[in-house]
Computed example of a mutant assay.
Amino acid sequence: MTDSQVLDEFRASDALLEGHFILSSGRHSPVFLQKMLVFQYPDRTERLCRALADKIRAEFGKVDLIVSPAMGGIIPGYETARALGCPAVFVEREEGEFRLRRGFRIPDGARVVMVEDIVTTGLSSRECIAAIRKHSANLIGAACLIDRSNGRADIGVPLVALVRLDVPDYPADDLPPELAALPAEKPGSRDLKA
């Protein structure tokens, strides 16, 4: 898939939003990719994740297991694993730290790729990778559908992205006037409470 084709999947799902958004990192941006609007369509999700699986195979070779961070990484992790013909598990926050739960395990020596939905600062990816490294697996790399950092986010392992974008984001105390003039929305899920 070309970059344009990937972004067309987001546009066709009304998932490429413009305005003033507070990202899960706390930074502010005029663009938000509401991936769950894409993930509601199995055919779109399958096309995107099959293309990501092809990139993973080309970069890393055989993969034994996909590990993703909950919540946003579960669907692309599962669908990418399906395209790769391997299992998918996910880590969840427990006492503020990502951990395997639900009886999931990472076999010793397994060739593991961490799959994420969208990378901005790389925080969730780094936290997921830290959880994977507590096991005796062979973490061979990471992948995401969209890298909003355009390759600047350092997650500690090689990162394959279906698309790399250079989307501006700003600290809350240094917003451009045109962004500050708009009401801010916080569409992410990181700070939701039960």
Rank of each mutant, 00 (worst) to 15 (best):
M1S: 13
M1D: 12
T2C: 04
D3E: 10
S4L: 07
V6P: 00
G19H: 14
I22R: 12
S25E: 09
G26W: 03
H28S: 05
V31D: 01
V31L: 13
L33F: 08
L33H: 01
M36R: 14
M36N: 11
L37G: 05
V38G: 00
F39I: 07
F39D: 08
Q40I: 08
Y41H: 15
E46C: 08
C49K: 13
L52Q: 01
K55T: 10
I56Y: 12
R57P: 06
R57D: 02
E59H: 13
V63K: 05
D64T: 04
S68G: 14
P69Q: 03
P69W: 05
P69F: 02
I74Q: 03
Y78L: 13
E79S: 06
T80W: 01
A81V: 12
A81M: 08
R82G: 07
A83Y: 07
G85C: 08
G85T: 07
V91C: 14
E94T: 12
R102N: 05
G103V: 01
G103F: 08
F104H: 11
F104I: 09
F104D: 15
R105F: 13
R105L: 13
I106T: 06
P107M: 03
A110S: 14
A110Q: 05
A110P: 04
V119M: 08
V119C: 03
V119D: 07
V119W: 03
T120R: 13
T121G: 05
T121F: 02
G122Q: 06
G122W: 00
S125V: 05
I129D: 09
A131S: 06
R133N: 15
H135Q: 09
H135P: 02
S136D: 15
N138M: 01
I140A: 04
A142V: 13
A143R: 08
A143N: 04
C144D: 06
L145I: 03
I146W: 00
D147S: 01
N150C: 12
G151F: 04
R152T: 12
D154H: 08
G156D: 15
G156W: 05
V157P: 06
V157D: 03
P158H: 04
A161D: 02
R164S: 00
D166K: 08
D166Q: 03
P168Y: 01
D169P: 00
D169S: 09
Y170F: 10
Y170S: 06
Y170M: 09
D173V: 00
P176G: 15
P177G: 13
L179Y: 06
A181H: 01
P187I: 02
P187Y: 00
G188K: 06
R190N: 11
R190I: 07
D191H: 15
D191Y: 13
A194M: 11
